[in-house]
Design a binder for these strands. Structure first.
Length: 482
RNA sequence: GUCCCCAUCGUCUAGAGGUUAGGACACAGGCCUUUCACGUCUGCGACAGGGGUUCAAUUCCCCUUGGGGACGCCA
C-alpha cells in the first residue's frame, strides 16, 4: 500500500447529500486509483446537532453506493478512533501545547457581546471579524475571570500580515492574507474543539496525504494552514472540488427536490447510476479513440480518475440525465437481479408469486425501465382487461371472430416459450386469416389487454400462459358475438 | 461590506493561441415497428460584456457583470 491516504469526513447532522456523496466518491476513486487508503472519519464535535441516526444513515448510504472504506467506523484501523467525539483528549493535548506557547488564548466574550461587535463592524462597513479584545487580557485578569467560573473558549491567535499560499489540486495557486482573518475559536466553552482545529489534528495524525473536500472549505484553508504551522505539522495536498447547485443555480437544498442519496435510493435509482452520474459532475473521463465512454461502473472509474480532469466550475444538478443513466444501468442488469431489487413484483396478482413468470415479464418489459419503480409499472398492461362492446366496437365480428378462432386453435400446438419463435407464429396467423399490420396486431392487443399501447405483441404471448391467452381470446370472442 | 473561487449549447462537459468549437442529456424530425419504449440517424443549440497582449484569441492579462463560498463557540 502506498503512502497515499484520503479521507471523507462528514458531520452526522443529516442525510448524505449528493455534494457530500460526490466528495466521498472523488476521495474513494483517487485512493483506489493510486493504491492508497480511503478513510472514513465522523466529525461529530457539534454535540447539539450530531445524531446517531445520521451516523447510521451516512454509513448506510456510503455502503449502498459501494464506497467501502479501509479504515473507519465498523472497520477500525491504526489511526482510530474515527469518531472525533472520542478523540477529545487528543485535541486537548494540542490545545494545551498551543496555550503554553501563547499561540492561542482564553476568550470570555459572551454570544451577545460578539453579536454586538459584529453588528458594529458591519455598520462601519468593515469585515465582521473578532476584535481580539480578550487577546489583550493580562495574566492576572485571566486568572481572576477563570477563578470566577466565567465560561470561556479558546481562540487561535492569528499572526497579522502573513501571506498564506495554498497550492490546490484543482484550483492551482491561491493566496490569502492572514489580516482578513479574526482570531477564531478552536475550543468551545463547552469543552469541545471546533472543526478547523480537529480537522488539522486528525488529518495530521491519520497521515492524510490528500485533503479532497468541497469548495466551501477553500476559505477555511488559510485558517487551517495557520494551525498546521503553529503545531509544526507538514501540510497535506489540498484539492477543493466545486459545489453542486440546484437547477436555479443556488445552493442545493430541500426545495430542489431529492438531494440526498437516501432519497434517490427510495426513488428507484441504482447505486451504480448515482455514482456514475455524480462522477461526471465535475470530472470528465479521458477520451478513448476520440470518444468518451460515459456509462461506467466503479472499477472503470477507478481506472480513469485523476484530478487533472476535475473541473473548477460549479455544476448544476440535472436529474434528467440521471434518469436516463439509471435506465442504462438498469436495463443492463440480469433478470434475476432486477427481480431481487423489485420483490413486490411477486406479490402482484397477475404474477401470482411465480418466479418464472416474473422473469418472463421482466424480459418482456425491461426496455421500458428507467427506475426500479418502472418495473412494476407495466403490470397493469398485462392484467386481465374488462372488455366491453364499446371497447371492441372498432372490430366487426365477421372480420375478427375468424381471427380469434384461428388463434384459439393454433395456440395449443405453438411453441411460445421463446420470443424468437413468435414472429413466425404471427406470420402464420396472418396467412391464415388474411389480416396483417394494424388489423392483426392492434386487434390482438385490444383483445388481450384492453389497451391501445404497450410492449410489443410478442411479449404478451411470451409472458402470458397458454391458458391465460385462451381465456382472454375466448372472452373477447364472447363479447364480439354479443 | 471585505476576502476567495468560478464563467463554452437549456444542463453536464471536451478544448490547454490558428478547430466547420467536439461529445452526452433534454428537445425536434427520420428510420426500425401494430403502438409506446429501446436502438439508430439527422437537426436545433454555446465561447457573459469591454479593454488589452499577439500576425492570430474561447484559450493569456486586466476591468465590469453575473453566480457561488467564507467572514460562527456549524462543519
Amino acid at each position: 500500500m502506498s503512502d497515499i491516504r484520503l479521507r471523507f469526513a462528514p458531520s452526522p447532522t443529516g442525510f448524505l447529500h449528493v455534494g457530500g456523496a460526490r466528495t466521498a466518491l472523488f476521495n474513494y476513486l483517487y485512493a483506489r486509483r493510486t493504491g492508497g487508503a480511503f478513510i472514513l472519519r465522523i466529525e461529530d464535535t457539534d454535540i447539539e446537532r450530531s445524531t446517531e441516526e445520521s451516523v447510521e444513515n451516512l454509513l448506510g448510504s456510503l455502503r449502498w453506493l459501494g464506497l467501502d472504506w479501509d479504515e473507519g467506523p465498523g472497520k477500525g484501523g491504526e489511526c482510530g478512533p474515527y469518531f472525533q467525539s472520542q478523540r477529545i483528549e487528543i485535541y486537548n493535548g494540542y490545545v494545551q501545547k498551543l496555550l503554553d506557547e501563547e499561540k492561542c488564548y482564553t476568550c470570555f466574550c459572551t454570544d451577545e457581546e460578539l453579536e454586538a461587535e459584529r453588528e458594529e463592524m458591519a455598520a462601519k462597513g468593515l469585515p465582521p471579524k473578532y476584535s481580539g479584545k480578550c487577546a489583550k487580557l493580562r495574566k492576572e485578569e485571566v486568572r481572576t475571570l477563570l477563578d470566577s467560573g466565567k465560561p470561556f473558549g479558546i481562540r487561535f491567535r492569528v499572526p497579522p500580515g502573513e501571506k498564506i499560499a495554498v497550492e490546490d489540486l484543482v484550483h492551482g495557486h491561491t493566496e490569502f492574507d492572514s489580516s482578513i482573518l479574526g482570531d477564531f475559536i478552536i475550543k468551545r466553552s463547552n469543552g469541545f474543539p471546533t472543526y478547523n482545529f480537529t480537522c488539522v489534528v486528525d488529518d495530521y495524525l491519520m497521515k492524510i496525504s490528500h485533503v479532497i473536500r468541497g469548495d466551501d472549505h477553500l476559505s477555511n484553508t488559510p485558517k487551517q494552514m495557520l494551525i498546521y504551522r503553529a503545531l509544526g505539522f507538514d501540510t497535506p495536498i489540498f484539492g477543493h472540488v466545486s459545489m453542486i447547485l440546484g437547477p436555479d443555480g443556488s445552493r442545493l437544498s430541500k426545495r430542489h427536490g431529492a438531494t440526498s442519496v437516501e432519497e434517490f435510493r427510495n426513488n428507484g435509482f441504482l447505486p451504480e447510476a448515482v455514482v456514475n452520474f455524480l462522477s461526471l459532475l465535475g470530472w470528465s473521463p479521458p477520451e478513448k479513440d476520440g470518444a468518451v465512454k460515459e456509462i461506467m461502473d466503479l472499477p472503470e472509474m477507478c481506472g480513469l480518475f485523476g484530478f487533472d480532469r476535475v473541473s473548477k466550475n460549479p455544476a448544476i444538478m440535472n436529474t434528467e440525465k440521471l434518469l436516463w443513466m439509471n435506465g442504462m444501468h438498469l436495463r443492463k442488469l440480469p433478470g434475476e437481479k432486477i427481480l431481487e431489487l423489485s420483490p413486490s413484483l411477486l406479490e402482484d396478482s397477475f404474477i401470482g408469486g411465480s418466479r418464472e413468470k416474473a422473469l418472463k415479464y421482466i424480459e418482456a418489459t425491461r426496455d421500458y425501465y428507467n427506475t426500479l419503480g418502472d418495473v412494476t409499472g407495466r403490470l397493469a398492461e398485462f392484467a386481465e382487461p374488462g372488455l366491453s362492446k364499446e371497447l371492441l366496437s372498432e372490430y366487426p365480428p365477421e372480420k375478427f371472430i375468424p381471427l380469434l378462432d384461428c388463434l384459439l386453435e393454433d395456440i395449443h400446438a405453438a411453441d411460445l416459450s421463446n420470443m424468437q419463435m413468435l414472429p413466425a407464429f404471427f406470420k402464420n396467423i396472418s396467412k391464415k386469416t388474411g389480416l396483417k399490420g394494424r388489423d392483426l396486431y392492434h386487434s390482438m392487443r385490444v383483445f388481450l389487454t384492453g389497451k391501445n399501447e404497450g410492449p410489443e405483441m410478442q411479449h404478451f404471448f411470451f409472458v402470458l400462459s397458454k391458458d391465460e391467452l385462451s381465456a382472454r381470446f375466448e372472452k373477447a370472442r364472447a363479447v364480439l358475438k354479443g
